[in-house]
Write a protein that binds this DNA or RNA. Structure first.
Lengths: 242, 242
DNA sequence: CGGGCTGTTGACGACTTTCAAGATCGGTGG
DNA sequence: CCACCGATCTTGAAAGTCGTCAACAGCCCG
């Protein structure tokens, strides 16, 4: 099995709780029917009533919300291995949509499938609850980032987080990873204009902290970048105990 | 029993799930030992390991985080009836602190007490889980607010939210409520400078949308204020069914 | 080859911050 | 009861960050 075919969702769960082989197999079997979706399409539309449970296998997506004046605010990224709405027992009542930022491969699950999974593999349930807490901590971190830091630090922080998260699912090689997020999307993430994002990126490059060519981001000076973004990865804590 | 002595926590839970009389009594009994704390003190310090479960009975508090350059970002308000960390089964590992914004009266609970409560009164557990989801939605809303809206709309949105939440616990009379939050705190909430908050408040007053005298805020034109802040209270949804 | 999306750049202006100084308010001690 | 003090609020001026507008370049894909 080529490395690119590794089940990153399983891998992520394993970093959050101890899955037995049987648990892992169950997870694998749950993810057989994978759908493709092109970039820029909504995977889960706003106001979806009964939830749009999905697991992202390949590609990037985001959770966002439209607001007055044509602006849009992205509130979370989904990277390979991330899931959406999987731990929600209650009705979800989304006031946000999920959009593919790149072409994606994803699995849609029914509430029934999810409850089977949680019942048959309690460790998976535990992992998902932990993942939910990490997501919440990340949300808080984004609020702090956007509310309290200037543009340069915001982008730096964002890149540090992506680096960390992608590393956790094996998508970073030699301090380099695919970062297929347009400057417009970064702008909507960081609460900046795309023009200012562009200039901020140039600044990071000029300082020798990153190299950004096409969709490939290389972190040249992680120490300085983390200091600049006041990045402390604690909130992304994975596995607490073995 | 004077109205001011109403148990606002119980009242909030009842708006989130159907509590039996016994459930309610159990809640009441759990809240006998109330502590007082002066304004500007940390109720839960940063890096508290095993959680600082508490229920706020009187006064305002906030969840915040310090950041570089002496700035501080507030990520949530706690108003009477709100609780903190009550639904956390896992270790909490806080990366933020809770501070009293005013003198407060609060109840501290041990993990044991919480689990007794959840076991003896499952409806309380359900209410707390709903409360947690509302908190998360609120957090997302704040991110959207701060990331995507100009100062005037940010403050307007914030006031609309406070109005809504305080109304739910009976702290709004004649479109007026106590708003004992300093302009410095508002600044740290909205990601603005205190000077700019001051000017923004004057703008809201000049437009006849609010009256703010001392610590008392009156909403003069709710319709316009909500439109200005693009406020849609859906995320604060209380009781879904009776 | 052409068109659309993305990235880049310049000029200008707006929103917001910083600095600094006063005014006001509420509580405390005399 | 009054004076005083710190905290909070208010105001002005100057500077800076960031946004808008507009145009152009580069790239990918059909």
């Amino acid at each position: 099995m080529p490395a690119s075919k590794v089940n990153r969702f399983r891998r992520k769960l394993e970093s959050l709780a101890s899955l037995s082989l049987l648990d892992g197999d169950l997870v694998d079997r749950m993810l057989l029917k994978q759908d493709l979706a092109p970039a820029r399409t909504d995977l889960v539309p706003q106001h979806e009533r009964s939830g749009g449970r999905l697991v992202l296998m390949e590609g990037f997506a985001c959770r966002y919300r439209n607001l007055l004046g044509g602006r849009r605010q992205i509130t979370a990224y989904l990277v390979p291995g991330d899931s959406y709405d999987l731990d929600t027992v209650l009705e979800s009542d989304t006031d946000h949509a999920i959009m593919a930022l790149t072409p994606v491969r994803a699995v849609r699950l029914s509430p029934a499938e999810v409850s089977v999974l949680m019942r048959e593999a309690p460790a998976v349930g535990e992992a998902l609850r932990r993942a939910a807490r990490i997501e919440e901590a990340t949300l808080r971190e984004w609020l702090v980032n956007i509310g309290g830091r200037p543009a340069l630090a915001r982008i730096a922080h964002l890149f540090c987080e992506l680096d960390w998260r992608l590393k956790a699912v094996g998508l970073v090689e030699d301090d380099r990873f695919e970062m297929p997020i347009t400057q417009y999307d970064l702008a909507d993430t960081a609460g900046l204009s795309s023009v200012h994002v562009n200039r901020t990126l140039q600044d990071l490059r000029r300082q020798g902290l990153i190299a950004l060519a096409g969709r490939s981001l290389t972190i040249l000076d992680r120490t300085t970048l983390q200091a600049l973004g006041d990045f402390q990865p604690h909130y992304l804590r994975h596995r607490v105990a073995a």
